[in-house]
């Protein structure tokens, strides 16, 4: 019994592990001193951050925001690929100065890091054969696929309670099931769906404008890095005002994307 208790305690301890407190650090000063700003970015999630087949460099929507910030700081920029799981610890440990990696602004994360103003708004949408899903009614009593461990499933169960949700291990399988008619749609964050849509034969599939949740993306910075946060927010607002934010948006979501997407937000100090 004693052994069992110990085991339970150990397991619970693992569950509750928190990374150590971020050292108070002024990135604004440090980055200028080093002459470089290090950004944590995604490297396989077009169009946000991915390796360009021609130049072998990481490019994308997130990357352009990093570059703009570094330019404004008059320092060089370095891209460091991160995963969703590693990005916050990496920031806290000082390996990166800024997270620009499709990170949704949530209350839970706000306890650990600071967020900039929202620089992109997405939400959970559907990917389906063109013309088959126009309203949520089209999903009633049907099968819808998603990937495991995401919150996508809960959202769709709430929005269409009669739909059966099949959770696959990964998105490519969910998409294949949709292509083979095993499910009528794949549902998850729009950004992920867009990446999948670009791999499909053009014209046959679409992401209808139905949205069942809202996810604002923010840039992540160390907690208490006040001067840097203020600098980033100020810069974002300037970029919105002088049209650069929109230019970046158009570059990635209208010009190069197979499916033009309307810009459904502006960067404001509100959020």
């Amino acid at each position: 019994m004693k052994k069992l208790t110990l085991m339970l305690l150990a397991t619970a301890a693992i569950f509750s592990l928190r990374t150590g407190q971020a050292a108070a650090k002024d990135t604004l000063v440090d980055a200028k001193k080093k002459g470089v700003l290090v950004c944590g970015v995604k490297d396989s999630l077009p169009p946000f951050g991915y390796v360009d087949a021609g130049t072998r460099e990481i490019v994308g929507y997130d990357i352009d925001f990093c570059r703009a910030l570094a330019d404004k700081l008059k320092v060089k920029v370095e891209m460091k690929p991160v995963t969703s799981a590693s990005r916050i610890p990496q920031l806290q440990e000082g390996n990166i100065d800024l997270i620009a990696a499709t990170m949704t602004h949530t209350a839970e994360r706000e306890k650990q890091i600071d967020f900039s103003h929202t620089y992109f708004v997405t939400g959970q949408k559907f990917l389906a054969k063109a013309g088959t899903v126009k309203t949520l009614k089209d999903l009633e009593g049907k099968k819808v696929a998603t990937a495991k461990g995401s919150t996508s499933e809960q959202n769709v169960s709430k929005a269409v309670p009669t739909a059966t949700v099949l959770s696959f291990d990964d998105y490519p399988q969910a998409v294949l099931a949709m292509q083979q008619g095993k499910v009528v749609a794949v549902t998850t964050d729009e950004s992920i769906l867009m990446g999948q849509l670009n791999k499909l034969p053009s014209g046959q599939y679409e992401i209808p404008s139905l949205q069942i949740s809202e996810e604002p993306y923010g840039l992540g910075m160390r907690k208490g890095d006040t001067a840097f946060v203020a600098f980033v927010n100020k810069t974002l607002l300037e970029m919105e005002k002088n049209g650069e934010a929109r230019r970046i948006y158009d570059k990635w979501f209208t010009a190069t994307s197979g499916t033009p997407r309307a810009r459904n937000f502006t960067i404001t100090a509100g959020k």
């Binding site: 495991k148 461990g149 809960q154 099949l166 959770s167 291990d169 399988q173």
Partner: peptide
Amino acid sequence: AMTIGVAELTYQARQVESY
């Protein structure tokens, strides 16, 4: 079987966890 969306025991346990 949960890899193809069959809602068996492990699938449901995962489900309970994520909710």
